[in-house]
Amino acid sequence: MTTRASLDAPTDILNVKDMEVAIDGRVILRDVDFRIGASEFTGLIGSNGSGKTTLFQVILGLRPTVAGTVSFHGQPLARRNRSIGYVPQKVLFDPEMPLRARDLVALGVDGHRYGLRRRSRAVLADIEEMLTAVDADGFADRRVGELSGGEQQRVLIAHALISRPELLLLDEPLANLDPGSAQEIIGLLHRVATDNRVAVLLSAHEMNPLLPVMDRVVYVANGRVASGTTDEVVRPDVLSALYGHHVDVLRVHGRVLVVASSSDEDDRMVSEHPDVVVK
């Protein structure tokens, strides 16, 4: 889906064009077009199994594409791009594992380095600062495996941010959190991302918690995406075209609800709107 906002701008850090990904010959995503500008907060919205994690793997250079280009600062993606930080969907930390929250953050600095050089004072101070930034001071010395989901999420964010990436990817960070903790994580993430001038691409199956902070949305359905600002994308015509059947977008109390209608109207709906272009 091409909208005005997705025209290339000089500040883009990530640019995805006509991309297609297949797993074992099955096309998972096709005609994917979107961009992420510096310090922008982007929500990657889609239901479970819509291909969000696959998209992350592509951006991280862990999965090849079939067609199209993905560029980071105008350059093709490299496999070991340390300018991209990542918080995976679920990390099962063993509670028996004697690794403190602080150690996990430290591994964000040197976890990929061979040898055992001592961490400098500056690095240690940086770790402290990052722990404070994500409000993890209170549990910095507890084992990661013993922390609650929200606490682990915060430590993982610190782990990802400490290497000073330009783009931070978070895969369903709100999935296992209660609404209160989810709000807290979003607020915290928005704050640290702004402070550190990091662009955020966060995947979720529900967009409402993100509405207050989201600059743009990348909406995934049916193996395709629509992207732009919330107002540009979350509209009945755009989403109907994306889903391939009619959906309504309701706004109630500042919340957005996407509702599907009965199926025989669908075909008519799309065909009556030839101006809705879905690539």
């Binding site: 862990l62 594992m97 996990l104 591994l107 990929h112």
Partner: peptide, 23 residues
């Protein structure tokens, strides 16, 4: 062990995290 300690620790913690950091 001293040489691979940190990447080994990170990949013990989470293969995914280690892979994305280029281990």
């Amino acid at each position: 062990i001293a040489f691979i300690a940190r990447p080994l620790l990170l990949s013990s913690l989470s293969i995914e995290l280690a892979a994305t950091r280029g281990v």
